[in-house]
Each structure stands twice: as structure tokens, then as C-alpha cells.
Design a protein around this nucleic acid. Structure first.
Length: 645
RNA sequence: GCCGAUAUAGCUCAGUUGGCCAGAGCAGCUGAUUUGUAAUCAGCCGGUCGGCGGUUCGAAUCCGUCUAUCGGCUCCA
């Protein structure tokens, strides 16, 4: 007998070899029907895999992450089976479940390819195979035997895959006519899969290395009910409506021009006003935290970047130097502001009493991004960082770092970014050649970040290989409308640039010491931050940020004069307001301004002129009643104060 | 940069197997209407069908190439 501990800590005894499905059946038929996988001591098991030892046990449905994993992984196998059936001679690489479905990387035979027109055929084949309710059968095979099988089959991909596995036995799963090397877990049978949709195809380098051959990656998604698929597709449609590229155009926030160049955003007046307000908001916070503004040019001598290490790291892959005609000087567009700020630090000697120094600049930088990488406002070639560099003594580092975390958290809270994740980005453990500086400096910097994050109680994940080339980072990540994660805020500890720029201060001992640098950008970049903000708010910006808080809608042209009077009074009370004086019916004006997401509409007609009042309508909600002009400006003031609290 | 796809008016889209002057709605302009909580009516303006080259008697439509965009991969100081 074995002891099974349920999530609520109750313990039951079962015969050894019982399956998760049997246990579920023992609880209720309905649960057994909805279960797709089970958890056994933290590992995800097939429903039908025998459990042979005492275990902490959990049943997962499709709604659970662990359930989806088994479901989509099984779907990937199903898709592979369909592809094998439709494309003779195809070779398979791997097919995992991912965030929103699954994919399979395949190598199609010479001259064959899959296009979007083939998707329905593939879907049909998959459903046909699903309806056969073929069982997913787990089988352990000795490594040598598996190797022999695939060598004879001439499948170099699977041979490579097995070669990288530990010796001993290897697990295979078979369903219908399809057998695949796989760790599992899987569904009991293909009949669980009721709805499938092939989403897209893409090239994907074998093993993620661009030197390798590019395989074809087929993305799909599947569900246990047709209804869930429909809901998912509808959700995607909704998400598309929030896309900052679409809203940016509709709300006239920014644009691109192929004449100006790809990845070089042009901010339109409304977007510029929004951005300016964000900048002012941060400037105010930074002033409170003791930052001082600095301003530096957009280019710098090549030598500056040789000193900083940027040139050695990125010189060949960046915009090429700008040369002066007569003297043959070489300048680079600045990829970062830190070298300039280091030279500001060096402009005069410093005492330990001066530190910390906090230099802040909304600095525009230019980076060569590969053309295929550009993406709306989230990935561009010219962008403005809300940058600052803190130069401090080693004993001040932790306190300063924590203060920066506070700024980031305050900003995220003010803008309702609740679902962010924090990531400690460290060096690639296996390849230190990508970074500058001594191990000792790196160790100190990493320790400082880990300690400060722990002290603030941040729930961090560690990502190796994500550090900046000069130091480790604490990154704040936020998801966009379609679930892609973007790095926004970043805080970086750097012992290396101070060495390279020979930064010094005189200590109380009258000796020269080296300061530590913190690089930080709470927004990350104005471009990316605004992009994510647009998607989070669906263009309905908070009142304090939006460039137009209210619009006055005269019922007819007869009331334009009163509207002007109202506008003047509200403008004096710092309400950002305009008038829709067009010769249109109120219904039309309301509709147009609803679409423009103006938070409040102030309707004025006969009644309002008589009572010296406004009829207030809230965007998305409708009529909220009559107010006097003063009442309305107070109302806006209160709302703004609340938002910024 | 790589794989796949897309590009028609300011915006959203039609345009059948290549065939006379390339269409619609919205926006814009003009006029009528003076309007009460999500679209008043009429007229007008607007496109070298992304650029260039080719095939053809004839190209928005077929082919090549360049540019830009979209979905991924790789990259991301």
C-alpha cells in the first residue's frame, strides 16, 4: 500500500500501482472526466501512469497550468502524427507546449513546404486522428536500442537528441501510428482533444543557433471543447484592438515613415503631450529623491566607447561611425548615456561628502536592431531612456539601490501595473567572454542586487545570460496585450565602468577611492513604456496623463459662445479641455469623442446656459448628471489627486 | 539578418480566370439643417493600385528585385 497526500493534507492509502485516473474516479466521475494530468511529488504524471510510492498528489484539469501542459504537449504529438501522414519523409525535431498552445519543429523534405492554405487540411487530419481516441502509450527503451532505431531510420535530429540524454532507458510515447521520443506527460488518449487551430508557421533555427539549418515551426493551439477555442480566438481579436500600433494610429499618438527610416518613431502632438506629462511626473519624483538633471549630446567620439567597452562589444554590429570631412574624426551615435555621464563625473574632483551624486537625463540613444526585430514602439532603433546614473560610495550602494526600487514600485503602482515580474539578470554561467570586468566585481554587484531585492521582499526569478555586458541587473517585466513580456524598468550595479573611466573620490582618509555606479531607468524607455501603457489602458489613459481631459459639446452652434466661456474658466482651473464646435448633432459628437476616448464630455445647451452649468457624461459609462463649472473642475482635481496618491 | 506572409484614397476594406475611364464606407471640403446623450442629408475632392524592372496586344492582377509592415527565429548595450 502507498500513502497519497491530497492538496488539503488529507492522506489516503491505495494499492501500489494505482493510477491518477483511478484516484480521480474514486472522488467523483465528473472530476475523472475533467482531469487531464496529475501531480506526483511535484512531477506531472500521465493520468494512466501507475503510482508506486508514497506521494503528494494533485489532480490537474485543463484550466490548470500543469493540465494545459499535458494537453498541449499531447496535441503537439497529434499534430506531428498528422504532419507525418500528410508529408511523407518529414523529419521531426521537438514539439513542446508553450504559453498559448504548442509547436513542433519539423524539417520538410526538399521542395515541400507548408503554407497557410494547408492549415485547414492539417486541422482536419488532426481532428480525424483525435476522433480515433488512440491511447498515448508510455514505453521505456534502452538508450542503445533507441539510438539504433533512429540511426537506421536516418533521422539525424532524434539521434542528436538521444545522444544528449543520460544513459539508461529512454521514454517513448506512441499513439496510433506515431511514436516519439518524449518525457511526457500525456493525455490518456487523443479523444480528449476536441478542437484544434493551426495558428502560424515560422522559421526556427535548429537548437536556436542561427548558424544551424532553419527548420519549419508550426504553431497550434487546442482545447477540450470547441467553445473554448472560439472564446480563445475571440480573446485574441479583443487583444488586437488593444495593440499599441493600432491605437497609436487611431489616437494619433505616433507614426512611422519609411522615408525617415524603419524603427525611428515620430511622436505626434498628442503622443508628445502624453510623453511630456510622463516625463514631468518622473522628474518631480526624481527631484524629491535628490536627482539632478544633466544634458549630453547624441554623439560621442569613438574613443569614448573604446574606453567604455561598447566599441569592442558592439562596434561591428552597430551604426557605423560618423566621420568629419577635414579632420577625419570618428563619432558614434550614442547607444547609452553612461559614458557621457561618467565624463560629467570626471569634470571635477569629488569628496566622499559629495556622494551620492545622481545625474538624470532623458537621453535619446540609437541602437542598430536587426530589421526583423523591430516592433511598433516596443523595439525601435532610436529611443529615449529615462536614464540616470548614481555615483556612490560602496557603503551607500544598498541604500541607493533600494531607493531606486522604491521609485520603480511607486511608478508601477501609480499606473496600475499590477502584474509585473521582477527578474535578476546575471551573467551566462558558461560564457563569461561576453562581459567585461573581474569576477570579484561581478560577485560584489550580484550580491548587492540579490540582497537589496530580498530586503524589499521582491519575488524575483533569476535569469542567467541576461546581464548587461558591464554588470548584473534587476529588471521589471510587464506583459503586453498579447501576452508578450517586455522589460521596462531596470536597475544595474556597475563596478566596471568606474574603473574604465578612472572615476575617483577622496575619502575621509584623504586617499583616492573608486565609486560604484548604479544605472537605472524606471520606465526603461519612453517608447516601450508608452506602448505597454497604451495596451494596458486600451488607450483610456488616466486623467492626470491624458492630453485632453474633457471636451465641450454644444448642442447647437447657438451655444458655442457659452462653450467658449466654459472652456476659458476650466482652462484657468487647469482642466485640459477643448470644444467640439462642428455643425453636427450631439449624438454624432458624443460618438466621435467616445471613440477618441476623451474621459469626460460636457454637453451644453439651453438648460445649461440658463443655470450656468454643464451636463457631464463619462466616457464608456454615459450621463453622470449636472454640475456647475466649479464643481466640475474640483471633480477633475479630486480624481487626479486620487490617481496620483 | 533568417523563414513565412502582406502592401489598393488619410483610415478600414471590395476588386471574379490579366480586358474598356479602379470601387465602397469613414475622414476631409462645400451647402442645407440648428440639432439634447454612440453615426442628419446632399454634392464634391481624393489613388502612377508600395518603388523599379520584366512577360503580354493589354498588368492592381503573372514573374523578378528593392522598400516597408505583420507572425515567428536569432539578437536585444
Amino acid at each position: 500500500m502507498i500513502k497519497i497526500t491530497f492538496p488539503d493534507k488529507t492522506v489516503k492509502e491505495f494499492e501500489s500501482g494505482i493510477t491518477g485516473l483511478d484516484i480521480a474516479k474514486g472522488i467523483s466521475n465528473r472530476l475523472a472526466k475533467e482531469a487531464v494530468s496529475v501531480g506526483v511529488n511535484g512531477e506531472i504524471y500521465d493520468l494512466t501512469r501507475p503510482i508506486t510510492k508514497d506521494a503528494d498528489f494533485a489532480i490537474y484539469k485543463f484550466e490548470d497550468e500543469q493540465g494545459k501542459e499535458a494537453f498541449w504537449h499531447s496535441s503537439a504529438h497529434l499534430m506531428a502524427e498528422a504532419i507525418e501522414a500528410l508529408y511523407r519523409g518529414v523529419k521531426l525535431w521537438v514539439g513542446p507546449s508553450v504559453n498559448n498552445g504548442f509547436y513542433y519543429d519539423i524539417d520538410l523534405p526538399e521542395g515541400k513546404n507548408i503554407t497557410e492554405k494547408d492549415f485547414p487540411i492539417l486541422e482536419k487530419k488532426m481532428l480525424e486522428l483525435a476522433q480515433q481516441k488512440n491511447e498515448y502509450i508510455r514505453k521505456d527503451i534502452p538508450k542503445a536500442e533507441a539510438l539504433k532505431y533512429y540511426t537506421e531510420k536516418g533521422d539525424e535530429y532524434k539521434v542528436d537528441l538521444i545522444g544528449g540524454l543520460e544513459d539508461g532507458t529512454i521514454t517513448f510515447y506512441k499513439q496510433g501510428n506515431f511514436t516519439d521520443l518524449c518525457r511526457g506527460p500525456h493525455l490518456p488518449d487523443t479523444g480528449y482533444i476536441k478542437a484544434v487551430k493551426i495558428m502560424s508557421i515560422a522559421g526556427a533555427y535548429w537548437k536556436g543557433d542561427e548558424k544551424n539549418k532553419q527548420l519549419t515551426r508550426v504553431y497550434g493551439v487546442s482545447f477540450p471543447q470547441k467553445k473554448l477555442l472560439d472564446e480563445y480566438l475571440e480573446m485574441l481579436e479583443e487583444a488586437k484592438k488593444r495593440d499599441h500600433r493600432k491605437l497609436g494610429k487611431e489616437l494619433e499618438l505616433f507614426t512611422f515613415s519609411s522615408k525617415v527610416g524603419q524603427g525611428l518613431p515620430l511622436w505626434l502632438p498628442k503622443g508628445a503631450k502624453l510623453r511630456e506629462r510622463l516625463e514631468n511626473f518622473l522628474k518631480k519624483v526624481q527631484t524629491e529623491y535628490g536627482y539632478e538633471p544633466v544634458i549630453t549630446p547624441h554623439i560621442g567620439q569613438k574613443e569614448l566607447y573604446v574606453t567604455s567597452g561598447h566599441y569592442a562589444k558592439y562596434g561591428a554590429d552597430s551604426f557605423q561611425p560618423i566621420n568629419t570631412p577635414a579632420e577625419g574624426e570618428e563619432f558614434l551615435l550614442k547607444p547609452m548615456n553612461c559614458p557621457h555621464h561618467c565624463e560629467i563625473y570626471n569634470s571635477k574632483p569629488h569628496s566622499y561628502k559629495d556622494l551620492p551624486l545622481r545625474y538624470a537625463e532623458f537621453g535619446t540613444v540609437y541602437r542598430y536592431e536587426q530589421s526583423g526585430e523591430l516592433h511598433g514602439l516596443t523595439r525601435v532603433r532610436g529611443f529615449t531612456q529615462d536614464d540616470a546614473h548614481i555615483f556612490c560610495r560602496p557603503d551607500q550602494l544598498k541604500e541607493e539601490f533600494i531607493k531606486v526600487i522604491d521609485i520603480v514600485l511607486y511608478i508601477f503602482k501609480t499606473l496600475d501595473f499590477e502584474n509585473f515580474t521582477t527578474q535578476i539578470s546575471l551573467r551566462d554561467k558558461d560564457d563569461k567572454s561576453k562581459y567585461i570586468g573581474s569576477d570579484e566585481n561581478w560577485a560584489k554587484a550580484e550580491a548587492a542586487i540579490i540582497e537589496a531585492s530580498a530586503e524589499k521582499g521582491l519575488n524575483t526569478v533569476i535569469a542567467y545570460g541576461e546581464a548587461a555586458f558591464y554588470g548584473p541587473k534587476l529588471d521589471f517585466m510587464v506583459k503586453d496585450a498579447i501576452g508578450r513580456s517586455w522589460q521596462l524598468g531596470t536597475i544595474q550595479v556597475d563596478y566596471n565602468l568606474p574603473e574604465r573611466f578612472e572615476l575617483e573620490y577622496t575619502g575621509s582618509d584623504n586617499e583616492k577611492h573608486r565609486p560604484v555606479m548604479i544605472h537605472r531607468a524606471p520606465f526603461g524607455s519612453m517608447e516601450r513604456f508608452v506602448a505597454v501603457l497604451i495596451e494596458h489602458t486600451a488607450g483610456k489613459f488616466p486623467l492626470w496623463l491624458t492630453s485632453e481631459q474633457a471636451v465641450i459639446l454644444p448642442v447647437s452652434e447657438r451655444f458655442n459662445e457659452y462653450a467658449q466661456e466654459v472652456m476659458k474658466k476650466l482652462a484657468l482651473a487647469d482642466v485640459r479641455v477643448s470644444i467640439d464646435e462642428r455643425n453636427e448633432k450631439v449624438g454624432k459628437k458624443i460618438r466621435d469623442n467616445e471613440v477618441k476616448r476623451i474621459p469626460y464630455m460636457l454637453i451644453v445647451g439651453e438648460k445649461e446656459v440658463e443655470n450656468n452649468s454643464l451636463s457631464v457624461r463619462k466616457q464608456g459609462e454615459g450621463d453622470i448628471g449636472i454640475m456647475s463649472i466649479n464643481e466640475f473642475s474640483d471633480f477633475i482635481k479630486d480624481r487626479v489627486a486620487e490617481e496620483l496618491k
